[in-house]
Design a binder for these strands. Structure first.
Lengths: 148, 148
DNA sequence: TCTCCAATTGAAAATAATTTTCAATTACGG
DNA sequence: CCGTAATTGAAAATTATTTTCAATTGGAGA
């Protein structure tokens, strides 16, 4: 999660701890929401102006590989990224404010077992994304009387 | 599923039944696997050589909207499409041969209810994709002794 | 069957998202 | 500090998708 651990993980893979990588991870861990590569770039560039977009793409891949962040797949085909705390977590994303809540035990075991039995498939990968309204945005949308 | 139903559904939306649309749907319903837009284009062009790629994109969107096909999201961010029989189905996809098996009742109800209670989110959309090896490809990979 | 018009089409251009290339720079083990 | 492999950013290239627009076509109604 933090810089020390990252440095250690990187060393194990013969990779270096650079300012670009620190900036990208920092932005995502502090954001508490999902961010597109372009948004990460915009925000991280403030902390580290020399940063390039290419490096953001490369760093996002690396951080996914190391398990620090996760790629989120939207129904419309867009992608963004959010920081992770758990090893096999998923994200519950607010479609209004973008807040990304992590949850573990997606509990697809039963479903997968029954499908393996029924179809003979050997399931190895799953993509699961849940989207909706977070409590705050729900409240706002329920009482939309305000301005003007 | 078939032409008659499609014609009817299209009419309800003030849309027309065209040769391009028939060709695209036919390719997907006969394929029994997922296909990228480019692959649909390649195959459908054989049936209807005048077809353009732009129309394939537009038709895929339309058929998703009408529920005839479903978009499949891969972990790496690629997309393809597969024909559907059920209204709220998902696809179980073979990562080797691409075969797409449809299944219903993904049974995320329990998970979603517990998450709604725990987080206060109001979940409205879910993306669920399962990938693995179909029985045939499993058999082949288990006994890979053959050529040469 | 014929007519008419909105819906549809394909080609080309435009856009968006991502990746590759490459020479210059940087982190870090020794 | 030094040497070197890893990393970087800019620019170019690639890929996927969308927009534009004039020409065509399906099908409801005469």
């Amino acid at each position: 999660m933090d810089r020390v651990t990252l440095h250690h993980d990187l060393r194990e893979h013969h990779r270096k701890l650079t300012r670009a990588r620190q900036a990208v991870l920092e932005i995502l861990t502090q954001a508490n929401r999902h961010l597109t590569p372009a948004a990460v770039y915009r925000k991280a560039k403030i902390k580290y102006p020399h940063l390039g977009l290419t490096t953001v793409y490369r760093t996002l891949d690396l951080l996914v590989e190391l398990g620090y962040i996760r790629r989120i797949h939207f129904a419309d085909g867009c992608h963004s990224y959010a920081a992770t705390a758990q090893a096999h977590g998923h994200h519950l994303v607010c479609s209004v404010c973008g807040r990304a809540e992590e949850f573990g035990n997606c509990d697809l075991e039963a479903l997968m077992k029954s499908l393996q039995a029924k179809t003979g498939f050997e399931i190895s990968v799953h993509v699961l994304e849940l989207m909706g309204l977070c409590p705050e945005c729900r409240a706002k949308s329920r009482a939309p009387k305000r301005k003007k």
